[in-house]
Design a protein around this nucleic acid. Structure first.
Lengths: 332, 332
DNA sequence: GATACTGATGAAAACGATTACATGGGTTAC
DNA sequence: GTAACCCATGTAATCGTTTTCATCAGTATC
């Protein structure tokens, strides 16, 4: 590790001058500055991040927090965009999960690591720990969970569900079912959009038509789909908590010999890549991953660069309907 | 940020004693030590990682390096397991991609960030930069590329392709085609396994039956599949560079009215989750993501904890065949 | 009772950078 | 010719830890 001191010695100047030259400060003789920069480059000098971080209480690191299961497509896609944006903004991205907790906490971890800011991407939003972190002095942005007095970037769950219902309605569907995920912000807002959309068209939603499932889960999707299809008056269109569930659901439909898009329709959520790969292609709601990441990092950076001014942005990213063969006109 | 000095003052001892107490060193009065620990806890003291890192030239950070496209399932799954393992080993995981490069390099980035070690997960392995990093004093493990004198964790590409060919052969397939990815370690070793497997069974492989495609790419998979099916004597079984390509290929087959698993067989690679979700399910080679990650981190940690002893482990992770409906007996 | 030893504690250096302040030579102004 | 000023440069403090070394009281040994 070649230090600034070494560069200074090699250049025959003090560390102060070397530092100034390398940082391009004005008050140093241009010729000498160039010489210093050259020697630094030739020696392969790179500033020590730890020293910098110590000196200016800034680490240049942004932490991405989540519980687990990063590999689901939604998270993978989002994470990828977050990485692009954080790097664009000049930060490194550390992903921190829960496993390391042996008495440690997200909050103290953030503090100890000097994380300049954190993105809470997926977590048990009801845990005291998350609440503490979100309301602490550490700049934070929460994705897809509506926290009071915090920066949140939300998906327009209610509006999107409404639009999906509307699209189904306009294709003639009148008996709509919704298999939703575990309760929480995302599910609750989606449910609300679902009911709202139905109400707007004067559709009654039977109690049996709304089933709680499990996000990304094969068994639950298969079972719930079966239960709906067994109803005396089965739905003509089923909404799923996410694309993965929808695809498993479609498998269950096919297994019963139903022709998807004609006998029955299926609608996913998230717009993962698989949606266009399955057959039939899955109609779904495509999240705008790039926009989510961009706004998240934007807000986070603003909070980092303006310490003291705690903001509470509430941004909503809409996304858009992604057509697919799985949603067809209701058969007469 | 509550510092050690503050804790020491509050406890009425020197920072040295406070440090010793918190680190559980023996030479401090037990009662006093407990008192110090209590005050530290009550004040919410957390050690400053930057200071630690500066003091002990260790950051507790492991860097995961790759070019881009982290969101493909293979990388997402691997990344997830890597995270689990690094956290188990007590490290944080930073993902570093290429975008930040504005004259900066992976190598100097690793140096400046005090990264204790790096995993080179995906990159242009021919670039001078990667070669320099891999051969530098920074502990490094390379995944799925065979570097001389470096720690590498490889997939048993040759053996797995051989086994896949053998399985197809035993199902009666005699005309095997291989759409492979861009050249590089993975592709070359797979090709070698493919030819070896064919040779063992005395199969001749026509020049037209081996096509260079593009990893994870829809267009290339579709086009190459079409080209193979248009041959006067089309293959009875097509191997693909990865599952994504195989799935697109299957779509092309279906589009021609072929019944997959009977008229034609398709075999993927990687064993991503989508493989069991498509219809027909995709026969593929399932990577042992957990084992890859475990060994990678294990070797990396060994190198970190034994500085100076540069190892050059060559570990091979086998994975296993994952059956699927897409590979069936050849029709008579 | 003097000497050596032990064990707890504190003072201070060190890690590698930035930066406030001091210094000193050269220029300008009267 | 002297005062005032400017600009380049160096000295040293600082960030929060760990750790070496010194100190000092108490105890054991002869």
């Amino acid at each position: 590790m070649v230090t600034l001191r070494a560069v200074a010695q090699a250049s025959g100047v003090s560390v102060a001058t070397a530092s100034r030259a390398l940082n391009g400060l004005s008050n140093v003789d241009p010729a000498k500055a160039q010489m210093i920069r050259d020697t630094a480059a030739s020696m392969g000098y790179v500033p020590n991040a730890a020293a910098l971080s110590l000196r200016r209480a800034r680490s240049g690191n942004i932490g991405i927090l989540y519980d687990d299961e990063i590999f689901h497509d939604y998270y993978a896609l989002l994470l990828n965009e977050l990485r692009v944006e954080t790097e664009k903004a000049g930060y490194d991205m550390s992903i921190v999960s829960r496993i390391m907790e042996e008495g440690g906490s997200f909050y103290s971890h953030a503090l100890s690591r000097n994380l300049d800011g954190v993105v809470i991407m997926q977590a048990d939003f009801r845990s005291a720990e998350i609440v503490r972190l979100a309301n602490s002095e550490v700049p934070a942005v929460i994705v897809d969970c509506d926290f009071k007095d915090c920066n949140v970037v939300l998906n327009a769950n209610t509006e999107s569900m409404e639009e999906l219902v509307d699209r189904a309605y306009r294709l003639g569907h009148r008996r709509l079912a919704f298999i939703h995920g575990q309760h929480g912000n995302a599910t609750d807002t989606r449910l609300s959009g679902f009911y709202k959309g139905c109400a707007e068209h004067g559709l009654t939603v039977g109690r049996d038509y709304v089933i709680q499932g499990v996000f990304h889960d094969k068994e639950s999707a298969t079972e719930a789909t079966g239960r709906l299809l067994d109803l005396p008056e089965p739905p003509t269109c089923i909404f799923y908590p996410d694309d993965t569930c929808a695809i498993w659901g479609m498998k269950a439909m096919k297994a019963r010999g139903l022709k998807i898009g004609r006998d029955i329709s299926a609608v996913g959520y998230d717009g993962i890549r698989m949606a266009e790969m399955v057959e039939p292609t899955l109609a779904t709601w495509k999240q705008d991953y790039r926009a989510i990441a961009r706004r998240t990092v934007e807000i986070l950076c603003y909070n980092i660069e303006n310490p003291g001014t705690k903001t509470a942005y509430q941004v909503c990213i809409r996304g858009c309907f992604q057509p697919g063969e799985s949603l067809g006109p209701v058969s007469p």
